[in-house]
């Protein structure tokens, strides 16, 4: 078996594990309409209040499959991030970013819409970036690239740290775990999840829309 065949085989198995092939997933989505996490609203406005942190959701977050790559529910993840922001005495505003699935750009967009200039970007698979509006897209304040290693406690801390940046305090960067086996273990799944995210990218609608929890 050559490498390509192996990759195909693994991808197939991953797809099966993820709950059937793509059309089946779409069916599932109609079922999940009953279980909506967010109310999708109209075009979002840029914030003016300095006490807000904007969370930018990737195109598929909370829609098709409401779980991160390691099986945390999107509901719990959002709850923890928002609780982290609230514990610091700040407010959360949610937007959905439609025109890209790149978490760096999503986070930067959120930051630009944020009254405090601090935004958080989150993808369906759970990858998170904390961004500041004046930074270059490929830089960031904090990046959590290994989504499978992020626990609910860390999501809470991410919310807290973002709020602290917004308040102009200097938080200690969150310690992240590093596991060199994460990449081989989750690469196929991550690729599939990212493809699904990217399939949802739309250029024909306003780039940033309001979302309520």
């Amino acid at each position: 078996m050559d490498r390509e065949e192996l990759v195909q085989l693994i991808t197939k198995q991953v797809l099966q594990q993820l709950g059937g092939s793509a059309p089946a997933a779409q069916q599932q989505m109609t079922q999940k309409e009953a279980n909506v996490l967010f109310q999708e609203g109209g075009t979002a406005a840029k914030g003016v209040y300095p006490d807000e942190v904007v969370i930018g959701l990737a195109p598929a977050f909370g829609l098709d499959k409401q779980e991160t790559i390691c099986g945390l529910s999107h509901r719990d993840v959002m709850k923890e991030i928002m609780a982290g922001v609230e514990e610091e005495g700040m407010k959360c505003r949610l937007v959905r970013v439609h025109n890209t699935s790149d978490v760096g750009f999503i986070a930067l967009t959120a930051a630009k819409y944020s009254g405090s200039g601090i935004g958080i970007g989150i993808q369906s698979k759970g990858t998170v970036v904390i961004h500041q509006k004046d930074l270059y897209p490929l830089t960031n304040l904090e990046l959590f690239p290994q989504a499978p290693l992020i626990t609910l406690e860390i999501y809470r801390k991410i919310g807290k740290n973002a709020a602290r940046y917004a308040k102009g305090q200097s938080p200690e960067p969150i310690a992240v775990m590093n596991d060199c086996m994460v990449r081989p273990k989750f690469q196929a799944k991550a690729a599939v999840m990212h493809i699904r995210e990217t399939e949802r990218v739309r250029q024909d609608v306003p780039a940033v829309s309001e979302v309520t929890w």
Partner: peptide, 11 residues
């Protein structure tokens, strides 16, 4: 020139 991001909000 902007400072590196890790300096943001720090002393």
């Amino acid at each position: 020139q902007p400072m590196p991001p890790e300096f943001f909000a720090r002393t």
